[in-house]
Amino acid sequence: MYDVIIIGAGPAGVSASLYTKRANKKTLIIHNDNGGLKKAQKIENYYGFENGIEGEELYQIGIKQAENIGVEVKKEEIIKIESANEKFKVVTDLNIYEANSIIIAIGTKRNKANIKGIKELEGKGISYCAICDGFFYRNKNVSVIGSGNYALSETNDLLPIANKITILTNGEKAPEFRADNVEVITKPIEKIEGKNKVEEVLFKDNTKIKTEGIFIAQGTAGSIELAKKIGLVTTDNGNIKVNEKMETNIKGIYACGDCTGDILQVSKAVYEGAVAGLEVIKYLKNK
């Protein structure tokens, strides 16, 4: 059991860990090694680097800094967070971890695959949570958009419920997954159509399939998918809603950095990470 699990190893997550670890809290960072900072070329607007610094370099230094003071850092893919009695379970592709508090610093997906129709049909056949909404698709034909571990996890949750599941990889390589009622289509998607609810998926080659529900699970689980599954309030832009203490609507879960929206800057992430770290320390003390 950890005192705190931090999801994400960018400037927000690492800053938070520096505070929690120094306060002697057993701290674990889990990250998928795919942060926004890592992809940033040169950071020239952050304090203290007279010639700027490569994003990748700053990212690696941050992780080392956390490890140097004893923070555990694991490279695994987050599938979901679950809560029960103010304790939390973090499920990854390899393990399940438990903690008394969670800091989400998972960043934002900068290249959200923007398929036409998703936004318009949200809640009308478009879902971000198989375990929550699968119930409404009993014995129906549904689709999962995605191709990675996360998409397979969603497919698994739907297997006992749905009649048939079609995995739509949207141009990505087909996953290794075989089940009787699962089909895989790798064609790129043009748009999702339907009047009042999801009816069809139109592919770029002008073919289409009928489907009654679509579960969004592209790439790895991002802030929006984690948030929807556990019940965090999100904003219209898909950011996690926090107050000035970086508290979410769920007691014991904090969020900081790019996943809370506003300016996508290292300075803001560092600040919010520090606040989240300090607030978690207070929270654990009062628990």
């Binding site: 949570c129 375990i131 929550c132 119930f135 929807k228 599954k229 556990i230 019940g231 609507n249």
Partner: peptide, 14 residues
């Protein structure tokens, strides 16, 4: 809502 739905439990106090 439903009893088995995690997010619903978070909505309930609101």
């Amino acid at each position: 809502y439903a009893d088995w739905c995690g997010p619903c439990k978070m909505m309930s106090p609101i």
